[in-house]
């Protein structure tokens, strides 16, 4: 039995639309990737088995126009943006930027199932700073744990953390606490107007 032969050039021509949208969103041309695998070899998350698909395979999936599959990987959300891949890429692709762009695309499509906690984390983080202007870490920790059960992992260090005064119990106090909310609203307006043009 022989493996299926893929004509990559043909495939890229047929599915050029996705790679082009990724380029617009990230400023990176994923077509340049020649699969050396350096990104995956150095990826600390991949090396600790945190990803479902290795970074170099994500690049190939983008080249092949596998939009539905790539936006449903855990990898794009679990990437911690350390940019080791970017620093080492011989084709000068900012791979971490591509991951961030794929997140934005996946978020816009409301695809949340591959990385539920990551989605909840980012959404709650933004809501927190929109409300307080600065991160209210204690409030976040409690809210996030109630929603995901996640920080129960860290419950045993909780008392020490509070005792050492490493978590402020009360929300941060500033004069204009709504400034991030206002900026976010302006950004939405700007992006809406751009979409209309």
């Amino acid at each position: 039995m022989s493996a299926e032969v893929i004509n990559l050039s043909q495939l890229q021509n047929d599915h050029g639309d996705f790679v082009e949208r990724v380029r617009k969103m990230s400023g990176q041309d994923v077509r340049k990737c020649y699969q050396c695998g350096k990104c995956s070899a150095g990826c600390p998350v991949h090396n600790c088995e945190g990803m479902d698909v290795s970074p170099n395979r994500i690049m190939r999936m983008v080249q092949m126009g596998m939009e539905e599959d790539v936006l449903r990987t855990k990898t794009i959300w679990i990437c911690v943006l350390c940019s080791t891949c970017t620093a080492r890429c011989p084709r000068d692709i900012d791979i971490a930027r591509v991951m961030d762009a794929l997140r934005i695309m996946s978020f816009e499509r409301k695809i949340t199932e591959p990385a539920k906690t990551a989605n909840i984390f980012h959404e709650m983080f933004m809501n927190n700073i929109k409300k307080y202007g600065r991160m209210y870490e204690f409030g976040f920790a409690v809210g996030y744990t109630m929603k995901t059960g996640y920080m129960l992992n860290l419950l045993d260090v909780g008392p020490a953390t509070l005792l050492k005064g490493n978590l402020a119990f009360f929300p941060p106090h500033m004069k204009n606490s709504s400034q991030i909310r206002e900026i976010a609203e302006n950004v939405e307006k700007i992006e809406r107007m751009e979409g209309e043009h």
Binding site: M25, L81, D100, A101, R103, I104, F107, F121, H122, F125, M126, I129, G133, R134, M135, M174, K175, N176, Q179, I180, I183, A184, N186, V187, I190, E191
Partner: peptide
């Protein structure tokens, strides 16, 4: 009256948002 820089979340909602939040 400095505000949060938005890390590690704002930039994952959009490049402009990731820049505008810390810009001020």
């Amino acid at each position: 009256d400095w505000a949060c820089c938005g890390a590690s979340s704002a930039h994952s909602f959009g490049h402009l948002l990731g820049l505008a939040v810390p810009a001020k």
